[in-house]
Write a protein that binds this DNA or RNA. Structure first.
Length: 98
DNA sequence: CCCATGACGCGTA
DNA sequence: ATACGCGCCATGG
């Protein structure tokens, strides 16, 4: 991976404020990546010190293996899940609105 | 070089 | 809502 984009993604993830969420696609789009897969990959290998729990799938559901942990962390900061699903309409982070 | 494997996403059925 | 298929692309074998 390009060290540039790697940092870029890290910064973007870190920029998502508490109580808000973003999708892998959102981050990828802003970072100018061709595919959201890269975002997941970066978080996997280097996302332990980031608010990774604020990154979810486009359908509002967290990655399967993190489901419990992630929803718990989100709940702790006010993001509530209904039937394991986050309401993107309400919690999605809008960079231009904060 | 070819192939499989993902913290993904979208269109179809 | 569920299930596939396909595109995407970095990595590792």
């Amino acid at each position: 991976m390009d060290e540039q984009t790697h940092e870029r993604v890290r910064d973007l993830v870190a920029a998502v404020p508490p109580g808000r969420v973003a999708t892998y696609g959102d981050i990828a789009a802003i970072a100018g990546l061709a595919t959201p897969r890269i975002v997941g990959r970066i978080l996997r290998e280097d996302g332990f010190d980031l608010p990774w729990h604020r990154i979810i799938r486009a359908n509002g559901v967290p990655a399967p293996h993190l489901l419990t942990e992630q929803l718990e962390r989100l709940r702790a900061e006010g993001v509530l899940a209904v039937d394991f699903r986050i309401d993107l309409k309400r919690y999605r982070w809008d960079p231009n609105r904060e």
